[in-house]
Nucleic acid binder design. Structure first.
Lengths: 260, 260
DNA sequence: TAGTGGTCTAGACCACAAT
DNA sequence: TTGTGGTCTAGACCACTAC
């Protein structure tokens, strides 16, 4: 039980490792605003000279700041204070049947003044055990799967995969989820075939971004994602379930809960 | 725009760095279950020998696995596949006035078969700008601040700080938030002084754990936390706001949303 | 005492970006 | 061409853990 305290020894003053003290110094400059967003951080060689140490130790300090998400390092260019893109807010108030005109994603983008875009592709597959359990159907049953990739100002910002039971949507006007003008929102889509969604359940987990996610979402190494497992219900019937993946440090997730 | 693809060169086969290939190999063994939870991972020296390289390169591979959260490294003992404690579920259904007997935290623990415990301390301070904005009061106004630290089976699992306007709770039976038997839940507490909370708003962000949080929550380096900024409202009146901090990879946050 | 990880030195070659 | 970060070698001493 309990993770070890890092070794606190060494060389000079006996308390904190040299690379830690270097990192502390730069971290302080970032926190204080002395080094603002996008500012160049001293290079490994400069640090090594200034602190009378080697490049390896200087590098260790910069690596520590990188995994903390404070700086980004660019091969051949240098290290820079990370610019934190404005937080996107994703609110549970998106789940409403009233507006209906545009998609929740487009509304978020509009509110922030960014230009939304997305691509998607749909196919019919057999449900895995996990998906089947979430939809309350048998594993192996047919489901329509749609994969989306969303961008805001051409910057990738969200991935999602959605599954809908073929037994529910097959043969209806929404069998192919979104043609032309993009996702209107699941509630409105199902309304159009007479299925009234009245409940959405979202389960949020965070974990380190896998390599493919980092690539698709243009995230630096060491960053985390939020993964939202969402299910839409019409009464007790699950009509859609989705995995939504967003960069954890670019999103604020808001939930409004009524207390009864 | 866009983060750089890591350098893909070097030495032997020309595609992936040696330390990456070493990490890939061990990662595969972990994913496949060949190396189960808690299993010992080869030491730096063993890896160096097996892969005909130096300890530094072996170390780099293990460090990569560490920041991914796949292994923990213990000074003097070795490296081990990380045991992922069971996910705690924190559900929005906790916000109800019906049960009232025990605290939401205790109910979570009971459901999981763990033993809950907590410490807290209350003081009266002046509201910072952030807290004042959240409570809709003036900066500098008095608020009761309560800090909690929760454990499950003696393992720290949640930190929180709660602020309540002195103008609302001052002089009432709940001025000192929780005596004796711990937090009953905010809804029940305010019910007892005739204030009917009807809405809770939670905003979730994730970020790398700060050093103090790592220490208090017993988290390894490189892990992230979820930070929930929560506000309780009675009508338009904000009566409580709190910052709740949990280890991101040990919690699943569930929200049930009604669609109207 | 032996084995582990934590830190550090003093070099090397390479890939990439900017000039 | 220059300066940057990415990778690697071949050592060293130290602190911590387990025996």
């Amino acid at each position: 039980m309990g993770y070890p305290i890092p070794c606190q020894h060494v060389t000079g003053d006996g308390t904190r490792a040299l690379y830690q003290r270097i990192a502390d110094d730069i971290r302080r400059q970032i926190d204080s605003g002395e080094l603002g967003e996008g500012a160049r951080v001293p290079s490994e060689s400069v640090i090594a000279t200034n602190w009378s140490t080697t490049r390896i130790t200087a590098r260790q300090a910069l690596e520590a700041l990188r995994v903390e998400g404070l700086i980004v390092r660019q091969h051949g260019r240098g290290s820079f204070v990370r610019t934190r893109p404005a937080l996107r807010t994703r609110s549970s108030t998106r789940y409403t049947r009233s507006p209906g005109e545009t998609s929740p994603f487009a509304r978020d983008a509009q509110r922030e003044g960014t230009t939304p875009a997305w691509t998607h592709e749909t196919d019919r597959i057999r449900a895995t055990e996990d998906v089947a359990a979430r939809l309350g159907i048998e594993a192996g049953a047919h489901v329509m799967r749609t994969r989306y990739r969303y961008t805001a100002d051409e910057r990738p910002i969200q991935l999602s995969v959605s599954w809908e039971p073929f037994g529910v949507v097959g043969g209806t006007a929404i069998e192919e989820p979104e043609e032309g003008d993009g996702p209107r929102g699941v509630v409105a889509r199902f309304d159009s075939i007479g299925i009234r969604i009245d409940r959405v359940v979202e389960r949020i987990e965070a974990r380190a971004a896998a390599e493919g996610e980092r690539r698709q979402l243009d995230m630096p190494d060491g960053m985390w994602v939020q993964r939202i497992a969402r299910t839409h219900y019409a009464g007790e019937l699950a009509v859609e379930t989705a995995d939504i993946t967003v960069p954890a440090d670019r999103y604020q997730l808001e939930y409004v809960i009524e207390v009864k």
